[in-house]
Write a protein that binds this DNA or RNA. Structure first.
Lengths: 137, 137
DNA sequence: TAACAAATGCACTTCCATTGCACTTACTAT
DNA sequence: ATAGTAAGTGCAATGGAAGTGCATTTGTTA
């Protein structure tokens, strides 16, 4: 049995052709993708299916949602080092103002952020914007 | 002449009744507001006007946009300490998961974030989510 | 294989953001 | 002061993304 199938099974997700395809698509991409990106990649499939598949993946901590400030939600596979269900383990995201791509910088952890007295921090969203390594060359 | 009028003038913004009212509304609020919030506050005025007023304020660095992850853009007045046109001077925002309000923590500067080689950081968006001081009491 | 549960596809709705155009208001130069 | 112009405002409409209801299909289990 393929690794992807094992993974899905371990997360209590039923294996379907669609889900395998979407997983592969996400795995190939090194950048975070929007729903439209997936939609364009699978023109035969219905938007709703893709939408709900991503939501399922998200619930089961297979992908995480990224809010890079473009106003459009993006998604990326959680990698080995990514425990995005655990509050304290959050990596940062980098959004390139030139090519408009967003990447996960998994190995770059977010530093401890101090908040004023009375505030309780549960979660941190950190997006750095600028020029990515491809565009800066 | 009023302070607000002086401020608008100094930023090359024409003084109109609407703009003064919107500015005052923003100044009174201590939290970031959505377009709908403003809309509800000024039911006589048209949404478009409010929208464009905010856009104007934004361009002239009178308000800054906040993306707190709710999916709806919020706006807040730039304060004295806020030079949001200057890349390096960015404060963080706190979004309360309980009351759903977002506040600017102007005095809390964002620590220097390291990015990998080849990446050029221009801008940082940092939103901490949790429970605010009002709700944690 | 029958029965049930989950996944998919289609149609529709909602909400926010944005634009075009007509009309009104404010500034500028005579 | 006033005519002319530029900018601001209001109305209507559009577009895009997110989300929902329901019928149909597919998959799982007894």
């Amino acid at each position: 049995m393929q690794t992807i199938e094992k993974l899905l099974e371990s997360k209590d997700i039923r294996i379907t052709a669609m889900r395998l395809l979407i997983y592969k698509f996400l795995a190939e991409k090194e950048i975070a993708v929007t729903l439209s990106d997936i939609e364009n990649a699978f023109e035969k499939a219905d938007r709703t299916t893709l939408y709900r598949t991503i939501k399922t993946f998200e619930e089961k901590d297979i992908v995480h949602q990224i809010d890079d400030g473009t106003g459009i939600t993006k998604y990326a596979l959680c990698e080995k080092g990514c425990n995005c269900d655990i509050e304290t383990d959050l990596h940062l995201h980098f959004h390139c103002n030139n090519c408009n791509e967003t990447v996960c910088l998994t190995e770059h952890k977010i530093p401890q952020i101090k908040v004023p007295n009375g505030f309780i921090s549960e979660n941190v969203n950190l997006v750095v914007k600028g020029i990515c390594d491809k565009c800066s060359r």
